[in-house]
Amino acid sequence: MVPLDYYLVLSAIIFVIGVTGVVIRRNIIVVLMSVELMLNAVNLTFIAFSRSLGSMDGQVIVFFVMTVAAAEAVVGLAIIISVFRHRQTLDPQEMQLLKW
């Protein structure tokens, strides 16, 4: 049987890859994908603890995380498409209309 540590380390690695993607990428769609990676890593942690502690609450919370992830993807991509339509760019550095 695979111990809990392995799952936690796996999800830590996926989370860190997601953080790297958010930090280094200059395409806002890839940034959004990396955020999805991080959410997946967190879900994995929830499920691992849920099995380890023998409680179902972790699995229920995963559904709420998925709901928020889906809403975030839908609204985020709608914003990206409408920004692209106006400014013809996907670079978050150039989206600085609100910058002081």
């Binding site: 769609i29 994908m33 999805e36 998925m66 992830a69 993807a73 839908v74 991509l77 990206i80």
Partner: peptide, 16 residues
């Protein structure tokens, strides 16, 4: 994720 979010992201990539 595979059926919904991934397809949505692919659409956004193709559209933009």
């Amino acid at each position: 994720y595979v059926g919904g979010i991934l397809v949505l992201i692919l659409f956004a990539v193709m559209l933009t």
